[in-house]
Amino acid sequence: MGRLTSTINAVQASAQKSLVAYIVAGDPHPDQTVDLMHALVAEGVDIIELGVPFTDPEAEGPVIQLAHERALVHQVTLTTVLAMVSAFRLEDAKTPVVLMGYLNPIEAMGYDVFAEQASLSGVDGLITVNLPPEEAGPLAIALQDKKIDPIYLLAPTTTDARAAAVCRASRGFVYYVSLKGTTGSGGLDIDAVCERVAHLKAQTTLPLFVGFGIKDGATAAPIAAVADGVVVGSAIVTLMGENQASPEALKLEVSELVRDIRTALNASNA
């Protein structure tokens, strides 16, 4: 069993819900990323989702687009991101790290080389935003050889037939994109999400995580009540944009936001 599954199982065993935090590697500056990852874990984040910067992040809203641009200013490539995970692993052998990105940098590195390097760095899972399972065959094989979990997305528009196929292809967890839109969109319809999540959960034994539009304790708690975990992204990344001048202030604000969400999750699950 991989680090991702054993972590999720342990959270479930303690009757809690998993909290996943998303940041873009290298944002606002590459020197801060590993430190921020540790800070997230210290505040109760169970799994880190590390965005791999790309020039054309077509599924992202403005907040995360700018994060990609900030990281790219510092020439953060997939190779740099893997080095960051290695550095993180020097002090944290326990917290799963999932990379989230677009296919082209992985293609450029080569599937086998990527799987090998990612595995050596201590990467546990991979979400490739623009790679539906239909196109993922060769990459899935390379990942499987190196015990990296491919995580696919479900959307509000996904039919039941597709959902079954997506869940079959996924390992670790399945990621439900809670709204039609880009990352950071507002106006989450919590009741509709909960209904949909309950419907999807009946169709798979894999843990189901929900992301997009979860920005604080008030949005996280009701969704975590029906899902196995929640992903918080744009709310954290917004703080990166606002606190570029002060790494100290940034760390404090990120820690505070994550602590609030963790507290809300624990309270509603008590």
């Binding site: 623009n130 539906p132 239909e134 196109e135 959307a155 509000p156 528009t157 996904t158 597709r162 994109v177």
Partner: peptide
């Protein structure tokens, strides 16, 4: 059938667009 011209083409989009 799956939208490929030899090794090229295909459908590399986020899940939300697959149904559309």
């Amino acid at each position: 059938q799956s939208g490929h011209f030899g090794p090229y083409g295909g459908r590399f989009v986020s899940e939300t667009l697959m149904a559309a």
